[in-house]
């Protein structure tokens, strides 16, 4: 059985039908990239799967913990980097304090932020904040990690450091679903790519299959990136 199964998901905001009939599976260890034009429902799909939005109908089968990395980080500004990472594992998962701190230090060193334990989010660059938010999500030991355009709020010179972190996670078999506008990255890191447009999945397959598709909408969308 797949780690995550989405079946016939539908979602509207008033009379704006955003998700028309979405079905997808994610296997353990798989990296799925979701691409598509603005307004195609990518964020809404992630928000339904992560319970931030209530779907109108359909089924979401997932039994485990997940993390979500936001476009604009959403770190807690009044908590230090360390507290941002450790507070939920301690207060929500009721894990042992010293184990959580050890875990957090490992994650920070993995993110290249060992010297930032006691810093506050406002003292960090966007790229550093996003790395902290990835560490915060990983500290919960998620079975699956969702990303909603993790580099879109960053200056172009900072996107690389986040994409490298995600590549490292992929190399370590982390299961991930990544909404992104970084085509080269998606092609490079994903096992499967889904192209969404107008609330439906238009194309789905390996990067080679999707990027060489004959579908006109897919070609128009990719054309914009190759101009």
């Amino acid at each position: 059985m797949s780690l995550l199964e989405v079946k016939n998901l539908k979602k509207s905001f008033d009379d704006n039908v955003v998700l028309k009939d979405i079905s997808l599976n994610v296997e353990r260890g798989e990296v799925l990239a979701i691409i598509g034009p603005s307004g195609s429902g990518k964020s809404t799909l992630l928000r339904c799967i992560t319970d931030l939005e209530q779907e109108d109908s359909g089924e979401i089968n997932f039994d485990g913990t997940f993390g979500l990395v936001f476009q604009n980080f959403n770190l807690f500004p009044h908590h230090s980097v360390m507290k941002n990472i450790t507070n939920a594992p301690i207060k929500v998962q009721k894990r042992d304090k010293s184990e959580v701190f050890e875990h957090a230090r490992k994650l920070l060193s993995q993110m290249g932020l060992s010297d930032k334990e006691d810093a506050y989010p406002c003292e960090l660059s966007g790229g550093q904040q996003q790395r902290v938010s990835i560490a915060r999500a990983l500290a919960m030991n998620p079975d699956i990690l969702f990303f909603d355009e993790p580099t879109s709020a960053l200056d172009p010179e900072l996107t690389g450091e986040i994409l490298n972190v995600i590549k490292d996670l992929a190399a370590n078999n982390m299961t991930m679903v990544i909404v992104t506008h970084e085509m080269a990255f998606a092609r490079n890191v994903a096992d499967t790519i889904i192209f969404m447009d107008g609330g439906v999945i238009v194309e789905e397959g390996t990067p080679e299959e999707v990027f060489s598709s004959d579908n006109q909408r897919m070609k128009d969308f990719l054309g914009k990136f190759y101009d």
Partner: peptide, 11 residues
């Protein structure tokens, strides 16, 4: 976003 981050973390 503060509420959403907290909710996703299980608070």
């Amino acid at each position: 976003g503060q509420y959403e981050a907290a909710q996703v973390l299980g608070y």
